[in-house]
Amino acid sequence: MNQPIVQVRNVTKNYRRDDFEIPVLQNLSIDVPEGEFLALMGPSGSGKTTLLNLIAGIDRPTSGSIVISGTDIATLGESALAKWRANHIGFIFQFYNLLPVLTAYENVELPLILTNLSKKEKREHVEAALSVVGLADRMHHYPRQLSGGQEQRVAIARAVVTDPALIVADEPTGDLDKKSADEILILLERLNREFKKTIVMVTHDPHAADRAKKIQHLDKGELS
């Protein structure tokens, strides 16, 4: 078995809403081996998006440790965590979250602004990423000129353009019709199989989860 790229240990996460402390995850531990394609399923409010956010370093645990590729991200400061995210994580959102004023090319190029790559190298990376998702011919189109499935493929290209080891996807097919959803899932499978990307995907959809190598259920903050 491969070494775990994600090691979540005894993580508790509570949210504070006004005067109430709401427990979301309680003493949760999980390992995700390198090269895994894990689907996290569970009812609404079960804490799966919270777990995904913690793994992606966009939220912090109340207690416990989260070690990704050997780095305990719970100990990193804001700037260091932002830099770490840029280098190690590709995030795919349910609603794509492309910037409407940028073309597909420019949206994919966004994470590369933070790198020291030359203009030529950036162009090669962006074109490669768009080719992987099959949108090389639409690179100069704006999001409003693309279908939902195409927008999500641009978002996937943006997630992989920095060549991160770990891709986290929050309901990536939740806003798509069945045909587009299938295309996205095939693409994720390909990223996992051909490009050896570790993928953690949150989904409600059993059909989407079936594409993963492993499915884990989360309910009331506990894995089963």
């Binding site: 992606a56 910037l99 994470p111």
Partner: peptide, 16 residues
């Protein structure tokens, strides 16, 4: 606000 959050996810810092 949402776009800024997305940029932060991509690695943009408070400075950016």
């Amino acid at each position: 606000i949402r776009e800024y959050a997305v940029l932060k996810v991509l690695g943009f810092t408070s400075f950016h």
